[in-house]
Design a protein around this nucleic acid. Structure first.
Length: 889
RNA sequence: AGGCACGUAGCUCAGGGGGAGAGCGCUACCUUGACACGGUAGAGGUCGGCGGUUCAAAUCCGCCCGUGCCUACCA
């Protein structure tokens, strides 16, 4: 009775998940052992941003990592899966600013120090949420090694790397055109700019040529930048503009005299073939400006507000300025025309503001030397990308890479380890804060205001988390890490940069394999976003379906390298699966007392059904292991799902039932059946554990076991000699004939409550013997009253008939048979077989096929033909007999 | 503009040179002592189009159409 209560009719995840996660933690099961003599497996988590909570994409990423790490742990590896979070500079700062905004505050009111404190508080909260979510998901991370990118140790690593790169000349400071986000008031890197197609306008503006009554027409999408024009440019070989030689143009509204330069960067085919040059606000113009010694006039400030160089437009926002300037141009006759124009405009990928090319002084990483090495290690296969199609993308990007702007005008992040001397302007770059200027000994020094790009510290993650620059035991043992699992969307941002930094500072790749998981989308393939309202909340779905079902759904859909359309319907489906597994276990538990009922047995005591099940399980063990080796999570899941539901539950448990009831079997058989059920189930839950950690632990703990947890139990391994051909072949026949009998019942509308008489004709002696021995199963599963087995069917009339390999079936339906229904049923099947026969005949009649196809393929086809032909003949006979009978009546 | 994917059952997608698959949905029957989050049976597809390679193509190759994604300094 107490056991009935223990095993409720449906699986309730809430009752078991929390309990087992706490148990795992108490027993330190996730902790890596740096002194272990076993082989190691190591992996670092892609650190989630401390911006709030994890989304379902994180759940996918971490589920896959957890599957691998649990699998490796059970295989006996000393596993390290290192957890941590990322400070996520801009992203977090924006989130906290918005949060403050709701309270009517702005960071400028707080000041840098207070604001930083505020972000730290946010970080603490967010990290708590993230850790809680990961634990709910069952992630087996080594929490004793948790890291954060702004931790003291990691910050030290950042400074060390900066200083070393600087001293090698790989970091430099320069005045350059960068991507500028006026909302963030910061520079951002090329990667952080999203190019979005938008409908804009192309403005055609007349620029008068001084000393003539002529003008040239310039087309631009950003007319306000004309305030910073310092030249016009034409292609040197463009004859159409030869007349401009030695002339100057007059900048409308401003009155500045503009020289006309000749430069090949002008495209003669495009637009009006003559360009305005704005060196402080366009990257190409900037380069041209350097070539031609043009002045650089900055016309707006860091917020995108016009400055004193904009004359009377000073103080206006860039777009207001555009409006007013254009209307004035129109008024004064300088605006020739306006055209609709579609073009790609850069947006800040964090806040969606339109970015501006903007001249400012920034810090850069000279990337080529680093990229060259990083390219080499992948080309030499020191790092493998899965799916491999990303390799090519990586090569292309690494080859065309530009210097990396790493300074950000933010308050949240690693302060750049650079000090400026107020007296002599010396720049001091040191790991430790200097007390005085090393040049003039002045103590009037101050630290650079800027912080580093978040990805600068993320790039060090695989070794900074292990203790670098100290030579720790962890670093020695676990670097390079074995595997990285991440999304392909951060291939350039993160993966590529880790490879650059790892090869540079560790002289070794940061990981040996990178698996890229797909991106989660909604069921219609749309991106999930809060504004669309199609986001799936992680804790909510875990609450609704259970962590195991959520995990299994994600893993089952994780085909490599493709987007994953996720719907809750899927999760409901896999919740049903966990429930199925639960109930299969419940069946075993309710029938068996593991302490008393188990026995040892010899192979000769097993039925063919037992042998079939063991053989099938062995094959499934092979498949699952092989699929995990190849990161084919979805196939591993499908194999498990099909085996558990449609082989173990549908057939094996069903066929075990007669042996468990007291009247149908002898004591010895019953013992063995019970033992086998327990044995198979136990191996099965171990096999499924990496995918569904909670339910498998719950079941496993109720079964006889040695270790303290399934977490460290041995993972099933394939035994090459355990394949049992005889059992698989014979059970195949048994199952097919039962299915056929059921099929006839259903099609002849025989109600399930009505038992049938079943006649079987089996020529093959061995097969007949086997079926004889297992007739009870046919009786049970096909609902048979009397079963007659002989080498041929007796002559009978008024029967429904069927044929499967080795076996003919007849079901007398005296008084019940609807001849028309039976005739149609037979004709349908005959037609289907006939189609197959014709296709096969065609194939077998071709000489080339017989000569060139592999012999086993030919043999296989011939056998299929023979078998189909036999069924065809028998069914045709049945149909004829039916017609004869019909006529007699 | 280039690059890369994808187009298979009503829906969402696996598969990947020799017998068209899954989940959900659908139809019929069934509260059978593990499970109605269940059982049994079933319907449904010229595997985007056109060519090519091959004894054999949904699968490999080319072109086309359609859909996504990434990269890009054309005013």
């Amino acid at each position: 009775m107490s056991r009935e209560i223990e095993l409720s009719k449906s699986y309730d995840p809430k009752k078991v998940e929390e309990k087992w996660y706490a148990y795992w933690l108490e027993n330190n099961l996730f902790k890596a052992d740096v002194n272990s003599s076993r082989k190691h497996f190591s992996m670092v988590i892609p650190p989630p941003n401390v911006t709030g909570a994890l989304h379902i994409g994180h759940a996918l990423n971490n589920t896959l990592q957890d599957i691998v790490v649990r699998w490796k742990r059970m295989q006996g590896y000393d596993t390290l899966w290192l957890p941590g979070t990322d400070h996520a500079g801009i992203t977090t700062q924006i989130v906290v600013e918005k949060h403050l905004g709701k309270k009517g505050l702005h960071r400028s009111n707080l000041g840098r120090e207070e604001f930083e404190k505020e972000v730290w508080r946010w970080k603490e909260e967010s990290e708590k949420v993230i850790i809680h979510q990961l634990q709910k998901l069952g992630a087996s991370l080594d929490w004793s090694r948790k890291r954060f990118t702004l931790d003291e140790g990691l910050s030290r690593a950042v400074r060390q790397v900066f200083v070393e790169l600087y001293k090698e000349g790989l970091i430099y400071r320069d005045k350059y055109i960068v991507n500028w986000c006026p909302r963030c008031k910061s520079a951002i890197s090329d990667l952080e700019v999203d190019h979005v197609e938008v409908s804009g306008k192309l403005y055609y503006i007349k620029y008068p040529i001084i000393g003539t009554d002529k003008y040239v027409v310039i087309a631009t999408t950003r007319p306000e930048t004309m305030l910073g024009d310092t030249a016009l440019a034409v292609h040197p070989e463009d004859e159409r503009f030869a007349w401009l030689d030695g002339k100057k143009a007059l900048l409308p509204l401003v009155g500045r005299k503009l020289p006309i330069i000749k430069d090949t960067y002008v495209d003669r085919e495009f637009g009006t073939s003559i360009m305005k040059v704005t060196p402080a606000h366009d990257p190409l113009d900037f380069q041209a400006g350097l070539r031609h010694n043009l002045p650089q006039i900055l016309i707006f400030d860091e917020e995108g507000r016009m400055n004193e160089n904009a004359g009377k437009f000073k103080g206006l926002d860039r777009y207001q300025c555009r409006e007013e300037l254009v209307s004035e141009l129109k008024e004064k006759g300088f605006l020739l025309k306006l055209e609709d124009y579609r073009h790609a405009v850069g947006h800040c990928d964090r806040c969606r503001t339109v970015v501006e090319p903007y001249l400012s002084t920034q810090w850069f990483v000279r990337i080529k030397p680093l990229a060259r090495k990083a390219l080499e290690v992948v080309k030499k296969d020191k790092i493998k990308f899965i799916p491999s199609l990303w390799t090519k993308t990586y090569y292309e990007w690494m080859t065309n890479i530009h210097d990396w702007c790493i300074s950000r005008q933010l308050w949240w992040g690693h302060r750049i380890p650079v000090w400026h001397c107020s007296d002599c302007q010396e720049i001091i770059v040191e790991v430790e804060e200097p007390k005085q200027c090393r040049n003039c000994s002045s103590s009037r020094i101050y630290q650079d205001e800027d912080v580093l790009d978040t990805w600068f510290s993320s790039a060090l993650w695989p070794f900074s988390t292990l203790g670098w620059p100290e030579r720790t035991e962890d670093l020695e043992r676990y670097y390079p890490t074995t595997l990285l699992i991440t999304g392909f969307d951060i291939l350039f941002f993160w993966v590529a940069r880790m490879i650059m930094m790892g090869t540079k500072f560790m002289k070794a790749v940061p990981f040996c394999t990178v698996y890229f998981n797909g991106l989660i989308r909604d069921e219609h393939g749309d991106k999930m976003s809060k504004s669309k309202g199609n986001v799936i909340d992680l804790l909510e779905v875990i609450d609704k379906y259970g962590a195991d079902a959520v995990r299994f759904t994600l893993a089952a859909m994780a085909a490599p390298g493709v987007d994953i359309p996720l719907s809750e319907g899927r999760m409901a489906g896999y919740r049903a699966f966990t429930n199925k597994l639960w109930n299969a276990s419940r069946f075993v538990m309710l029938n068996i007392n593991p302490e008393e009922d188990l026995t040892s047995y010899s192979r000769s005591e097993l039925t063919l059904i037992d042998r079939w099940m063991k053989s099938r399980l062995n094959t499934v063990v092979k498949d699952v292991n092989q699929n995990l080796e190849k990161f084919r999570f979805h196939e591993a899941c499908h194999t498990l799902y099909h085996f558990i539901w449609h082989e173990f539950c549908d057939w094996y448990i069903e066929m075990s039932k007669p042996y468990l009831s007291s009247d149908k079997a002898n004591e010895r058989r019953r013992e063995i059946a019970k033992t086998l059920l327990v044995e198979i189930l136990e191996e099965l839950v171990r096999l499924a554990h990496p995918f569904m950690p909670f339910i498998t632990e719950e079941i496993w703990q109720k079964l006889p076991h040695k270790d303290i947890s399934i977490v460290t139990a041995e993972y099933p391994t394939y035994k090459p000699h355990a394949y049992d051909e005889e059992a698989e072949q014979k059970l195949g026949v048994l199952m097919e004939l039962i299915t056929k009998a059921r099929n006839i019942r259903a099609e002849m509308n025989i109600p399930p409550s009505r038992l049938i008489d079943l006649y079987l004709g089996i020529k093959d002696n061995l097969m007949r013997e086997f079926i004889e021995e297992h007739k009870d199963h046919i009786i049970n599963l096909a609902k048979v009253k009397s079963l007659n087995i002989d080498s041929v069917l007796p002559p009978m009339q008024g029967c429904a008939r069927g044929v499967v390999p080795y076996v003919e079936l007849a079901i007398p339906l005296a008084g019940l048979i609807d001849f028309e229904v039976e005739r149609q049923r037979l004709q349908k099947e005959i037609a289907r077989i006939n189609d197959d026969l014709m296709a096969l005949r065609k194939k077998l009649n071709r000489k080339e096929f017989l000569i060139k196809a592999p012999p086993e393929v030919v043999a296989n086809n011939k056998e299929r033909y023979r078998s189909l032909e036999e069924r065809f003949a028998k069914l045709t006979d049945s149909l004829r007999a039916l017609s004869d009978h019909n006529q007699e009546r």
